[in-house]
Structure formats: C-alpha cells, structure tokens
C-alpha cells in the first residue's frame, strides 16, 4: 500500500503543477503512514532525485520513445500498470489538461473512484472524503470515494508546497507500452509567455481597454511582474486577444496568487473563472462595477492614467530589491 503520483513532463521538464501534486501526495502518504512514489513517463532532462525535496521517496521512470507523443490511452495503460506493479492504492494527478485526459481513463481501468479538482487533503476520519471545487469555483463539494483504490486530481495552485532537503531514489520501471494510434502533426507553443493555468500572477484586461492597440498596458505590467496575461470573453470574441487567454465560466478557470483585472466589469460568468485567486485587484473607472465586491484591493479610476503609474511604481520596487 502506497501513494503514487503522476509527474507530468513537458519538453523534458517537470511541470509546476506536478510539484504541487507530488507534495500533496506525500502529505497524504504521511497522513496514511505510508510512502509516496512518483511515476514519470518519457524523457526528462531534470535530475529526478530532487523530487525527494517534495516528499517523494522513490521515482519510477520509463523512457520508451512511444511516450514522447501524448496519447491518453497509452499513458493510462502505463500508469495503471505502474499502480499495480507498485501495489499503490492512492493515485494523484494534477487537474491540468493532461491530468483531465488521464485520471478518468485510469479510474476506469483500475475501478478506482476519482475526485477531480481537489482543493484540500482528504478527510479520513469517516471514510475517504475529498473536497473539490464545483459550480466553476462558486462552491465546494465534499465527495466520498467508495472504492478500495482511489484517485485524486489536484487543482493547480490549491496546495502550498513545503520543501525539504531529502532526495529520492530513481529506478527504471518496465511497463506495457502499446503503440499509439495518434499521429502528432505539429505543436504550436506560445513561447516566452508564462502558461496561464500555472501562472502565479495574472494581469487581465477587459472591454474597458477600448482596443487591442492599448494592450501594452496589460502586457508591460505582466512582463514586469513575470505574470501571464488573460482577458474577458468579449475581448477574445472580438479578436482583440487570442482565445486561449479567455478566462471565466466558459473559458479557462484559474487560481493564481494575484489576479489584476483592468477594465473588466466583473460579470458573474467572468468571476466564476477567477474567484479562486488568492488576491484580486480591480482597476475600473465605474465605482459600481460588480468586480469591486469580489476584490481585495481596488482603484476607482481611468486605466489609461492609473496603470502607467502602477508600472512606474513596480519598476521602482523591483529596482530597489
């Protein structure tokens, strides 16, 4: 009996959300008096023993070249195999695009109940109950898993990491790897940018910015803060910004540490995608904008005057540290 964490690799590097999943899995292992192991599929250029820093004692690695193209079917079988080979009974994913394609498939293969979008450690005082985000961030549900094997996929930015100096042992594991039936035609990465779903800070603009030519306000501030950029739905619909930046109930749901909304009214459907952010800043010239009710800090003012001053103040701050 142990906890197995799927550690996701992109371009040879461990994804940030996977460190959270690893640390979360290790905390569960600790809670259950057992050990946490990790499964890594495909080539990785990082030293996997450092997963020990996140509480993992053993890393199982398989570098079959078929794993370099992501096929949920092939991956799910490999992970199910690894779960059985390591006699693990709790399996952790991060609730990212990859995790969402995999965890449910593995759940079916292993007859293991799944809770996706978890936001807290399981409560084992009476059964095995996991708190998850529902209604697009507007509420939580506590969900009991009834099966012996259990799968949790953890929402990004929902669990804060505690690091140690430990190191993990790394072993090669042999698994059944089927040939993939999916052909990868091309990959189009938006390079240089911070991926929105994983960003610590997000700067977002709405229709209040009047036109795409004014987006420098958003991108300059984002760049200074090492932040990702986002937008409201109409902004993506009228093609001021690309669709993948659209956040909200029908776009991406995010939970960064800091969300800065500029010229966004704060419609309920927008809030649904951002209300799990830890700190929310709203800049809007209308004091009645609903967003102020969901904000921690606000400035009632014209973005075209306020934001350049914020940019100057951030430059000053960054220069002084």
């Amino acid at each position: 009996m142990s906890v197995l964490i799927f550690v996701d690799i992109a371009e040879g590097k461990i994804k940030k959300a996977s460190f959270e999943a690893a640390n979360y899995g290790a905390a569960i292992a600790n809670q259950m008096g057992t050990e946490a192991a990790a499964i890594v599929l495909g080539n990785c250029t990082e030293d996997l023993s450092m997963l020990g820093n996140y509480g993992i004692s053993k890393v199982f690695h398989n570098t079959d070249s078929a794993l370099n193209v992501f096929d949920a079917k092939v991956y799910a079988q490999a992970i199910a195999d690894a779960t059985e080979a390591t006699t693990s009974n709790i399996l952790i994913f991060s609730n990212t695009i990859t995790g969402k394609a995999l965890a449910p498939r593995v759940s079916v293969r292993l007859k293991a109940g799944l809770v996706s979008g978890a936001v807290a450690l399981p409560d084992t005082s009476n059964g095995f109950v996991v708190r998850k985000s529902v209604f697009s961030g507007k509420a939580f549900a506590s969900v009991a898993i009834q099966t012996d094997k259990k799968i949790i996929s953890l929402n990004p930015n929902a669990f804060s990491i505690t690091k140690s100096n430990n190191s993990a042992t790394v072993e090669t594991i042999s698994l059944t790897i089927q040939p993939s039936t999916i052909e990868l035609v091309s990959v189009n990465k938006i390079t240089g940018d911070v991926p929105l779903g994983e960003a610590d800070i997000v700067v977002s603009g709405g229709r209040g910015l009047k036109g795409p030519e004014n987006w420098g306000l958003v991108t300059d501030l984002a760049q200074l803060l090492g932040a990702a950029t986002a937008c409201s739905r109409p902004v993506a619909d009228i093609h001021w910004r690309p669709h993948h930046e659209h956040v909200g109930q029908t776009g991406l749901a995010i939970a960064p540490n800091l969300y800065i909304a500029i010229g966004i009214s704060g419609a309920i459907q927008h809030l649904a995608g951002v209300n799990r952010s830890k700190t929310i800043v709203v800049i809007n010239k209308d004091p009645e904008a609903p967003f102020f009710k969901a904000a921690d800090y606000g400035i009632v003012g014209d973005a075209f005057e306020v934001v350049p001053k914020i940019i100057e103040a951030v430059k000053k701050l960054k220069g002084s540290v």
Partner: peptide, 13 residues
C-alpha cells in the same frame, strides 16, 4: 487540441 501553453495538432482514425 489545447495543451498547456499552446496547441497541438493530432491525426487519428
């Protein structure tokens, strides 16, 4: 399909 930080084109039967 969307992937973290971009898009990918897949072909399948």
């Amino acid at each position: 399909r969307e992937i973290e930080g971009g898009e990918e084109i897949n072909k399948l039967s």
